[in-house]
Amino acid sequence: MSLLRKILLNPAMRPIWLIVVLLVLWDLAIRLFKIPPYLIPAPQKVVEALQNEWPRLVKESTVTTWATLGGFGLSILFGIPMALLIAYSRTVESFVYPLLVFSQSVPKIAIAPLFVVWFGFGIIPKVIAAFLLGFFPIVVSTVMGFKSVEPEMIDLARSMKASRLQTFMRISLPHAMPAIFSGLKVSVTLAVVGAVVGEFVGSNSGIGYVLQIANGNFDLPLMFAALVVLSMIGVVLFVAIDLLERVMIPWHASQRGDVHATP
């Protein structure tokens, strides 16, 4: 009994409690206000849809996850070197940064059809859409991380006759890690959005495609089920990066609560 109690009272359970409360309120609201199912489906309908369509949802979400990871990987591959160039060269910064900010104000959904025209209905337009959304937060956070190294830190390294590579590897890079990770967390959730945007405009697979079809058929339970799966993808990817962060920068202030808790 006490073990069950412990599990139920665990702080990690709190979000789940909130979800349960919200589900109950959702159900109550539908019954009380007699909301018709073509506007909002009842929770149990959504659960049924999840059960019935589970194999299909899993298959389609794998497609979306690959597109997300592809775009996210490209964001890292291009974002971090780009951020390094911006952080270490004023010339590059003055040329590239304004353009980068400008490019961010272009709504991705508006240009996504263009990628379909260029690259067809395969995975590439989705990856590009995910990349375009995930790229910017990584660049901004990484630039901030590298630029926030105190000048005294650099003076210290220079007084030790450190080479530029040594200074980078032993001081600047570890110093920038927390900022890079916060960029990665924002980026990965946005990459999911990007992949779905790609699937909306032109695709025949993926959760975005399921959403599109369900919407067209007024199949609201399926649509809600697809949304649940979609947010699960986002949560899982976010948690994966969070865990990686804990392993890689256990020294950072944001992780210290746990360090104290394990004496």
């Binding site: 105190e150 005294e152 830190m153 003076d155 210290l156 220079r158 007084s159 030790m160 006759k161 032993r170 001081i171 570890p174 110093h175 020294w251 950072h252």
Partner: peptide, 16 residues
């Protein structure tokens, strides 16, 4: 920068 010197700054500048 040369060999025979050690510097202490106003802030400890220790690596976290």
């Amino acid at each position: 920068p040369h060999e025979g010197v050690g510097i202490v700054f106003q802030s400890p500048v220790l690596l976290a």
